[in-house]
Each structure stands twice: as C-alpha cells, then as structure tokens.
Design a protein around this nucleic acid. Sequence first.
DNA 1: AATGAATGAGGTTTCATTCAT
DNA 2: AATGAATGAAACCTCATTCAT
Lengths: 235, 235, 235, 235
Amino acid sequence: MDRSRAQGKWAFEANPVLIITDASVINVAMPRVTPPDRREAILAAAREEFAARGFAAARMGDIARRVGISRPALYLQFDSKEAIFAALVGGLIADVIPDEPPGLDKTQSAAALLRMFIAAAFVRFTRSDFAFVPRIIAGEGQNFPELARYYHDEAIVRVLDRVEAVLRMGVARGEFACADAHHAARSVIGGIFLSAMWRAVFEPVGGEPIDLDAMARAHADLVFNGLLSRKEPTP
Amino acid sequence: MDRSRAQGKWAFEANPVLIITDASVINVAMPRVTPPDRREAILAAAREEFAARGFAAARMGDIARRVGISRPALYLQFDSKEAIFAALVGGLIADVIPDEPPGLDKTQSAAALLRMFIAAAFVRFTRSDFAFVPRIIAGEGQNFPELARYYHDEAIVRVLDRVEAVLRMGVARGEFACADAHHAARSVIGGIFLSAMWRAVFEPVGGEPIDLDAMARAHADLVFNGLLSRKEPTP
Amino acid sequence: MDRSRAQGKWAFEANPVLIITDASVINVAMPRVTPPDRREAILAAAREEFAARGFAAARMGDIARRVGISRPALYLQFDSKEAIFAALVGGLIADVIPDEPPGLDKTQSAAALLRMFIAAAFVRFTRSDFAFVPRIIAGEGQNFPELARYYHDEAIVRVLDRVEAVLRMGVARGEFACADAHHAARSVIGGIFLSAMWRAVFEPVGGEPIDLDAMARAHADLVFNGLLSRKEPTP
Amino acid sequence: MDRSRAQGKWAFEANPVLIITDASVINVAMPRVTPPDRREAILAAAREEFAARGFAAARMGDIARRVGISRPALYLQFDSKEAIFAALVGGLIADVIPDEPPGLDKTQSAAALLRMFIAAAFVRFTRSDFAFVPRIIAGEGQNFPELARYYHDEAIVRVLDRVEAVLRMGVARGEFACADAHHAARSVIGGIFLSAMWRAVFEPVGGEPIDLDAMARAHADLVFNGLLSRKEPTP
DNA sequence: AATGAATGAGGTTTCATTCAT
DNA sequence: AATGAATGAAACCTCATTCAT
C-alpha cells in the first residue's frame, strides 16, 4: 500500500545535468530534487482536495497539480487514490488523538479533568485541517469500511473511553452522579461532534456561524449542571 | 427539475372506462395507469443506493435496476441524478421534520416538553430510512450547497429553534437555569445527532452497536441534571 | 414508407363523446378531429425544425409538439424521421420546380425568356420556405443519397436543362454567342444558387444582408453583357 | 479549446539523448516523441468523417479508430468534438484562402487578373479535401453560428472583396463596364461556388460529373463576354 | 525519479421508435 | 386514432491508472 519504503532514498543530488543529443549540448538542467517530504506535500494537497470535494469527487490530477508534479508521480508514493486517503486520514487521527495518555491525573478533581478535556477537545476536533475528517468518514465511510472502522476505533471510541473513565472516577469519588457513564460519555462528545460538523459542513455553505468559545462554555455548563435550577453553587 | 407535473396526472382510477360517442360505445379502455408511486419507487431505490454508496458513487443504472425499469425511464420522472437526490432528501426532511407545530403547549412544564422532544427526536432522527441523510449531507454537502443549506435551514435550525424556545420558556418559568439557551440547544441536539450518525455510520461497518433507548435516557438525564452530585431530587 | 394510404379515411365525426367510468359520467369530450391535412401540418412543422437545426439535430419531439400531437402520432403518418424529411423535400421541390413547361415560347426572344427565367428563379429559390432545402441537401445529402440524387435530378438538372435549352435557342437564332451552352447554364444558375445559400446560411448568422433585387439585376446584366466594355447597346 | 499548447511542445528530435550528471552518463533516452502530427492525424481523420457524415452524425469513435488511437486520446489533443471541427475548418480556410495578397498587380490588365483569379479559384475551391467545408457549413452552420460567421468573414467575403477590387480597377481603367461591382462579384463567385458544391454534393451520390476545366473556361467566357452576340473580338 | 501519452471502464444523458391501452 | 410510458442503442466525455521513455 505504501511504496515509499520500498523505493529507497531520495537519490538525486542537486547537481547540474547536461543533456546531450547526438549533435550538441542542448540543455543544462538542475533537476528538481525529490525532497523527503514529497509524501507530506501530496498529503497536504490531498487534504485540500478531499476537504473541498469529498473522496469520490476529488481528482488525482488536481492533487498532482497542487503539488506541482505529474499525475503518475503520485503513484510513486502511493498505490492508489484510496491509499492516499487512508494515509491522510490515519495521519490526521493519530495527530489529533494522541496515543494513550499516561492515565488519569489523580491529583486533580474529575470535574477539572473533564473541563480540561472538553476545552481541549473543542479545539482539536474543530481544527480546520481536521474537521473534514468526520465529515468525509460520515459521507463515504461505507465505501471504506476499514477506514471508517479505524476512525471509529482509534478516534471515537478511544476518546469516549477516556471520557467514560473520567466519569467513572468522578462517580467513584462522589463528585459525579451518573447512572450510565457509558452513554453519558456519548452525550459529552455529542456537543463537540455537532460543533465540529457544524463548522465543517454548514458554515461553508452559508449556515449561521458558530461561536466555538461560547459553545464550549455552554456545553460544559450543561454537562456539569444540567438545566434544572438548583440552589447550590456549582464548582 | 421535476418532470412529474408536466406529464399529466394520475387522476384515473384503474377501473374500466367506457368511451361513448353519440352512436355507440366505441371503446372500453383500461388506461395503463402508471402508478403514482413510480416516482416513489424510484425514490425508494435511490435511497438504498445513495445510502449504500453516497451520491457520487451511486449509479443510475443500479437505481433503475432496483426499480425494475430501464435507465432512460428514470429520466421520465426526474431530470437528473441530482434532481432525484434533491427530491429524496427534501422529501425525507419534510417527512421527518414536520411543519411548524402549533406552538408550545403551555399547560405542560418545560421539562416535560423537553423530555418528550428528546424522546421523539431520538426516534425520528435515527429512523433507518432517514439516518443516511445527515451522513450524506455531511459527506457531499459541499458539492450541493443549496441542498446542504436547505438541510441546515429546514432540519437543523428549525429543530434547534424549537429546542431553544422550550429552554427559554423553562428559564422564564424558573424551571431551568440556563445562561445561554442558544448554545445549550446545540448541546441537547448534539447527543441526538451523534447517535444518529453512530447508527448510520459506525454500526454498518461493525462498530459497537448503540442502545438507543439507553442512550436517550442517559442523554435526557444528563441534560436535566448534569453530572454533579446534588441533594435535591430531579423531576 | 407512407402509411397514410393504407390507413383509410379520417374516421371520427366531430361529435360529443361521453366518457363513463363504472360509477358515472366523468367527461364530455369533443375529440380532436384528425383532419386530412394532418400530414401537411406535420410537414410544415418538420420544415421549421429541419430548417432551424438540420436533419440530424432536429428532434421528433419538437416536431410533434409544434403540431400539437404526441410523438407516436407522427408514426401514424410517416414511417420514420427520414420519411418525413423525404416527403418534405420532395414536396418542396415539386412545388418550386413545376412540372415540365409546355415548351419554350417561341414567340419571344431567347433574351426575354432568359431574363424572365432569371427573375423568376431568384424569387423561387430564395423563398424563405424553400431556401433551407439546398442548404440541408448540401449538408446532409451524403446520408440520404437517394434524396440528394432526387434533388439533383428533379431540381437542379431540370432547371439547368431548361436554361440550356433557352441558350441553345438563342444561339440558333443568332441572339447569343455561346460556345458551351452546357456549362454556361451552370454559370447562370450559379449566381442564383449563391444568392439562395447566402440568404439561408449567412444572413441568419449575421452575415451582411443581400439585396436580392439588385443581385438579380446585376446577375442578368453580367450574364447578358459580360464585363467587357463595348460600343453597342444592350437589349 | 485547444489543448496542444498546454501540453508542452515537441521540440525534441527523435534522436538519442544523453543525460549526463556531473559524474556520469545516467541515461540514454529516446523520448517517445508523440509526433507533432498527432493533431494533424486527428484532423485528417476528422475530415474524412465529417465529410462523409456531417458534423452531427460523425462519431468520435470512428475518428479515433481511423487514427488508430483510443477515443479518450482524442481528448488529449482537443477539448471536444466541436473543437476538432472548428480547428479543422479554420485550418482549411486558412489554407485555401491565403492571407492578404500583396495588393493588385497594377502592371497587368484587370481582365488578366480576373482570368487568373477565376482559374485559381476553381482549383482551390474544388480541392477534394476542402470541398466539404462549404457543404457542411451550409448544412449545419446554424448550429455553429460563430463558425459559419468565420467562414463568411474569412472565406467568402474576403474573396468577394478581392474580386470586387479587380472589377473596380477594370472599370476605372475603362476595361470593364459594370454598373454594380458589388453584386457582379457575387455572380463571378456564384459559378465557382456552384461547381464546388456540385463536386462535393452531387458527384458522390451519382450525379453527372462536372468537367471543371470546361466549366472554368465557360464561366470566364460568360463573365467577360456575356451571352449576347457582338461584332468585336474579345481579349 | 519523473512524466507525457495512452486507455479501459464506466458515467450520465438523449432520442427515435415501439408497446399497450 | 391517439398517447403515455418505456427502452435499446449509442453518444460524448471523465478519470484512475499504466506504459514507455
């Protein structure tokens, strides 16, 4: 699936080249050095195109043009359009959802941990270079079951698990009263997910803009206090 | 965009018809009634295909085959693939999001109203024949800005407005304490939206199944009470 | 090729018709009487369409709509698009190029006869309802060899023969000096043909308009006198 | 409309090429030179097809097959069927009607100039590879107004203007007596135009063949002397 | 390594014509 | 006689991918 490993190093030096025909020297060229980040350049271009048109409607030619290379050159780095897409999404997920944290920081309150998580998640999931991922997974995931599955496993479930863990910790400590931490975690993520989708889907087509800060605050507020009036103060 | 109007209506009953001149009966015709649901049949088939593959990857030939007609016959009812898609999505939205309700039922508590709303919304938005709509809007909305806009206006915003109205009513009555009803409404919808997407996107690719009833209950619980432990009872 | 003969007379009287379902009379209709000139109506409509778009690009549906009937109704009168075209062109040719004249009017001078002929031909060949014929024969004649051949035989050659006969008569009488009457006849027709084409082809696309009267006069003048200055008067 | 410019030029000779870096020869390449006449080959094939069937009825597949390439390869050189047609016709016109002549050769008599012009025009306009152009312009010009206009401007009018100039020169010198040079020029061209059409339209369908030499002579004779007998000798 | 050229497979759409009423 | 519906055949065109240099 990934040809870059099998193809050795980036061989050319940036040295002059003489092109000679049978008659005479006709050119002195400085070959464009293939940089090690050619793959990155492709992925960046692919992100733009996939974000703008979706997987099916994106065209390899546009990606290549954006990179400034020829279409076949794409295939030197990736096996197929699908491979580019998979690498791109995989990378973004790995980027946005960092590997297992060292466990919960027990010195902090569950509420504090959750509040931090929500704030961070709002920022990460709505990053403009990532927001298209859930969108495209949603729209074309059926055509890439493994990829959708990967996103599910590595992005969604992992995040949900972490939230659930915090919730359970809070319950254990008496901070939280939550009968169903498993599903409550989905409620917590729901507000974030909706916001990310909003930004990626509706804003570009002229929907009303969303104020992410206000949304993050309101969401946290609801998550902690609920709607019902109460006497006691909130932390 | 919609050829059905231009092609006569299906006023005829499928009953025998006598055509009588001044002299005598000259014909007994049973007009071949193209069923009024030919369009419906196409839309149903289209739903399957679009749900299964997305807009771009769906093929007119597959839709036709599913209906049991020829490809060109599709064009007797619709002008284009896009027209089918628009009719389908528009119809589903109109179906799932009914027209303006008669206004809030002031005899009930805001909490009761919201609880009912959440329960109903969970059912409607996760209906298996509708759930693909947000998914596909998400994935290919950029390519159909008017449609995405329509979905935004007619489905999302309308629902959000209704929730927000209930929230404000509750606040006015002292039932709810909610500093930012606008964004809180988005939190409320968030859990529902995530559930619908889950069902439509992740379950088909083998993600862990979601228990909608439990989810609805947990979401309502969180929305009303929040996570924090408290002494008072909840409604 | 022509179905009209085989299908008897135009049967319906223009009498009221009762349309009765099993339950009750639902309509009183006055059936559109099929007039004996249905074929004419089709041909007239076809002329418009063929003139406007050429044979290949003309659409049966447009012809039918212009007549105010359904597409299949066309096939009650003609076997095919090609049959309509052939009937149309054949009719027009027969119309514009009348059957053999009673022979040359020997009481008139050849010059007078030719002058009359040129004047008449300019009028006939540039008639707006006929001018499209040479145009379309030229453009799509290869696809209808018999038709092109028919046009050649019945329109062009016949006219040429008549001109040639006048020329020979003039030569015999000493009126004309013409070494090659056969080809001279083509020269005579050339100016007329060019004018007809001009009107049919270039004027519609914004070419400079042609003044047919002036052109007819100038052409006759050239044909009789030639360009060279001379002393003698001209007839 | 024309992709050839955008795709690099064919500067390379089909000779071996040595590519040399600072260190050593690294390649001996014989670049697959797509011959500069790939476009020409397509145009030639297109000419055959368009000539044989007209624009609308010609098929891209047939053109491709005639060239010996795949259908999509056509689109590497041209954007569309229409683009091929336009390039073909434009090229032929440019080919047959050369750019501005250096002006009239005042050392010759107007009669001599015109005689030469007629002789040359007969040859050029009836060239077998060009004759289909007027034919197809006539037949399908309405569908390509710009092209018809172009033909009108660049071919017809330009030629007419040149003839008219000669005529006026002859009149000014007393060689010609011509009251209406503008329309007389059309008469002159008429005979040539008819001959070209004859060859392109009627001969292929079995019409009587035309003897172009005799026709050219007879036409010139008529143009100079007219039909009327006269005493004086002609030049 | 890089690319211009080439193509197979497939897509949507159009239209003359026939069928069944 | 007339027509709404239906369709087979074909057209143009696009694009991911491979070939040969």
